[in-house]
Amino acid sequence: MSSVPAEPVGSRSTVETARVPHGGSGPSPSLAVVEAIADLAGCDPADLAEEGVVLYDHVDPDALNALVAGRPDADVDVSLTVAGYDVRVGPESAVARRPRD
Rank of each mutant, 00 (worst) to 15 (best):
L64E: 02
G84V: 05
A32V: 09
P5F: 10
S25G: 04
S30V: 00
S25A: 11
D86V: 05
R88G: 00
V68L: 12
L55E: 03
D75C: 03
D47F: 04
P99K: 01
A38W: 06
S25Q: 12
S30R: 05
A32D: 01
D77S: 14
G24N: 02
A94E: 01
D86E: 14
V15L: 14
I37F: 10
D77K: 15
E51R: 13
G84L: 08
P5Q: 05
S13Q: 10
V59R: 14
S11C: 05
L80D: 05
I37E: 06
G24F: 08
P72H: 06
V9Q: 11
V89T: 05
E50A: 10
G90C: 07
A46M: 13
D62M: 09
L40K: 01
R100D: 05
T14V: 13
P72T: 03
P99F: 13
P27R: 15
D39H: 07
P72I: 02
L55C: 02
P72W: 04
S28H: 08
S13L: 13
V20I: 02
A69T: 00
P27M: 11
L67C: 12
G52L: 03
G24C: 03
G10P: 07
E92C: 01
A94G: 03
E16D: 12
G23R: 14
V82Q: 04
G90T: 15
D73V: 06
V9W: 08
G42V: 01
D57H: 12
D73S: 11
E7K: 14
P45I: 13
V82H: 06
T81Q: 11
D73G: 09
A66K: 06
G90E: 01
A94D: 00
D60R: 06
S11M: 11
P91S: 15
G52Q: 01
A46C: 00
P8L: 14
E50S: 11
G23L: 13
D62C: 01
E7G: 00
A69M: 03
P27W: 10
L80R: 09
P61D: 05
A83G: 02
S30N: 02
G52F: 07
A18L: 06
A32H: 06
P45R: 11
S13N: 07
D86F: 08
V82I: 02
P27I: 02
A6L: 09
E35I: 03
P72G: 01
V34H: 01
G90V: 08
R98E: 12
L31D: 06
G90W: 04
A6R: 13
P29V: 10
M1W: 06
L67Y: 02
E51Y: 14
V15Y: 09
G24Y: 01
S13F: 12
V89N: 05
V76T: 11
A66M: 02
V20M: 10
A32Q: 10
S79L: 10
T81I: 13
G90N: 09
P45M: 13
E50C: 00
P45N: 03
G10M: 12
H22N: 07
V54G: 00
D77V: 08
L48T: 02
R100P: 00
L48Y: 10
D57I: 08
V59T: 08
V53S: 04
G90R: 15
E7W: 08
V78G: 00
R12D: 12
S25W: 12
D39I: 00
R88W: 04
Y85M: 10
P5M: 08
G24T: 05
P21D: 08
A63S: 09
A63C: 01
V68G: 03
L80M: 15
